[in-house]
Design a binder for these strands. Structure first.
Lengths: 231, 231
DNA sequence: CGGGCACGGATTGTCAACAAAATTGGAGCC
DNA sequence: GGCTCCAATTTTGTTGACAATCCGTGCCCG
């Protein structure tokens, strides 16, 4: 095991932040997992101060719960929070695609089509993890192309929280965010039909939300060292 | 000058955060004002560490710009950011009042009416500062009553940024957020008419945005000690 | 046998000194 | 006079040690 020159500064902080974030996005960290500062620090080869500020940022994003004097754990969203997040996503993403349907250009359309094709290929060859990642990023891409930095930021926030919602309420099986529905959304954008695009994405989000039944206990927390090794 | 027992912990951090936030909301801190850690620390009687984490939070909220190795300054929003924030507010607040028009109860309605009356009284007696504060909080109250924590949070974010937009693009005269239009919005909610309520709040936000002409340079930055003394 | 209490280890929170970087001011030169 | 370069000062960034808090354990007492 390499000693790995202890990184410092913003780089170290981002390292921790992204490690935890990616682990959440890939369902490798379950709600309730305790994040011990010293462990993270040694595991990632950064100072404890960097871990601390990264945890503060994660807490601000509601991805981890910061319990004063008692450390940080991966957030365990309540059913209310789940409803709120999906409702917020319907509101914001509907607006995003409505705007996009009016302003989209040929180049952006091509980018979206290429993205969906990539996504489909991943699912076709059985690569669930890659498919899952691309499915998440499809929604982010819509927000970026819409060109509103404020809404884009909110979308990022909501998207990153979504995996935790599924884990908290559905055990470890990730929700399926199909490439088919994504393609239909892009088709609506190609027709420059704001109403249709909005209806389709709202329907898509409803499909996702319905997959979450509030029945399962959160699965067992993976060990930190296992979860933080990026694939 | 009182020594003032140096506060510590979350309380100290919040003290700094709220001091800067309130100063921004009251137009006592203009974009570009430099926030020197040591000054803040001595002025508010807290440790430099507390100032540091508070500044990080303010940076995360886009209220201050954090320039690595060069300190923090009050954010100076671009015209694009201004457009994005108002567009985002139209999207989110429209959704908020639509939902509220469907779910609102008598008690909440009474609370809104009382709030608008208070606001009107403040303006009537010429108390611009109080009126301004209440006008801002009216929008926040709508989001709270709507009962969606995610949207409420986003609203908080957008509302806190708005004063900086007006200062950055309009000199020091604050935009007028009239109690009349607020009352009309409440009337629409009382009729439980989602479409009307959404139209009225969108129109209200347009009125606000139109008041900002991108013409003026930001006014001179007030001194820190002056700006941070809460009235 | 069960409940409370004190203690030890582990973990988080805080601070002050130190290191690194940038800004300022001025001397020297063109 | 204006420009460049350099040193001194100011300001930010980081670290490591220390203090405070919490949790689990085992003991004592009812």
């Amino acid at each position: 095991m390499r000693p790995m020159k202890p990184r410092s500064g913003r780089a170290a902080e981002d390292r921790v932040f992204n490690a935890v974030l990616n682990a959440i996005l890939d369902h490798r960290l379950a709600p309730g997992t305790k994040l011990v500062e010293r462990d993270l620090s040694e595991l990632l080869g950064v100072s404890r101060g960097a871990v601390r500020t990264a945890l503060a940022r994660l807490g601000h994003s509601l991805l981890v719960e910061l319990r004063p004097n008692r450390g940080a754990v991966i957030a365990n969203p309540t059913p209310e929070e789940t409803r709120d997040v999906f409702e917020a996503r319907r509101v914001i993403e509907s607006a995003v695609v409505q705007g996009l349907a009016r302003s989209i250009g040929a180049k952006q359309l091509a980018e979206l089509r290429a993205f969906v094709a990539e996504e489909q290929k991943a699912y076709d060859r059985g690569d669930r993890r890659t498919g899952q990642r691309l499915s998440i990023r499809f929604h982010k891409l819509l927000a970026e192309l819409a060109g509103n930095a404020a809404l884009d930021r909110f979308m990022e926030h909501l998207i990153c929280r979504t995996p935790l919602l599924t884990l908290a309420h559905r055990g470890s099986r990730p929700a399926y965010c199909g490439a088919d529905e994504h393609r239909e959304i892009v088709d609506a954008l190609a027709k420059r039909d704001p109403v249709l695009a909005a209806r389709r994405i709202a329907s898509h989000l409803n499909t996702l939300e319905k997959q979450l039944h509030v029945d399962a206990e959160p699965g067992p927390a993976a060990s930190l060292s296992e979860a933080l090794v990026d694939a």
